[in-house]
Amino acid sequence: MKLLVCVSKTPDTTTKVSFTDGDTAFDTQGVQYIMNPYDEWYALVRALELKESAGGTVTIINVGTADNDAIIRKGLAIGADDAIRVDAAGGSAYFVAKQIAEQAKAGSYDMVFFGKETIDYNGSQIGAMVSEMLDMPFISYATKMDMAGNTATIARDIEGGQEIVEVDTPFVLSAAKGLAEQRIPNMRGIMQAKRKPLNVVPAVAVDEKASIVSYALPPAKSDCRYVDAENMDELVALLHGEAKVI
């Protein structure tokens, strides 16, 4: 089985977000980056588990510049066999999806894994776009997945319950919490990762169809007010008069 796992680089979860260029770009100054946790902890690890139980290969793909090699190496250290980096400075979700679809077509993969979203832009778009471009079914927000032959049984969380889907390969899947458990790379894996192939390929040309106009931070949280437990009248007055929630 040939498995492709798409991984993104995202700012560390503790990053203080700010913008530059008249609020049209994310300020990367001093930002530490990690592999998107949904890609790493769930998509990649589930793919590795499938490989370990049924054989096959796991390839990582990322669209980005050489700065992204660190997170790609981490994926290789965790256990992927090889990696593709589409050499591009980035672009819209459509641009990235086009690049991944091109490589996925060329590699004839049985499954293409994504995290359910990146923790920075939260678009959840690329998996769906890639499935459309590859003309494959797309199962989103998978929390459990079992394989029997070429058929996968996948559980997805839906409002108030679960949906169980059966699908034959090839398909595209996005991974949510529960699909697998985080794996920490060990020293041997890190050393082996240095020797695994990381193929850098040029990007294909794409006509961008959307552009970012501006970003804005959410309004700052207002101060916390303490009200004495004995003084319910004051609490009610504040909730009614100031917070206007009752």
């Binding site: 090699d69 660190a70 190496r73 981490k74 250290a77 985080q182 920490i184 790379p185 060990n186 020293m187 890190i190 050393m191 990762a193 240095k194």
Partner: peptide
């Protein structure tokens, strides 16, 4: 890169 991977893995 290898050093940072090592450090972060042990930190995790």
């Amino acid at each position: 890169t290898e050093h940072i991977l090592v450090r972060d893995a042990v930190r995790d």
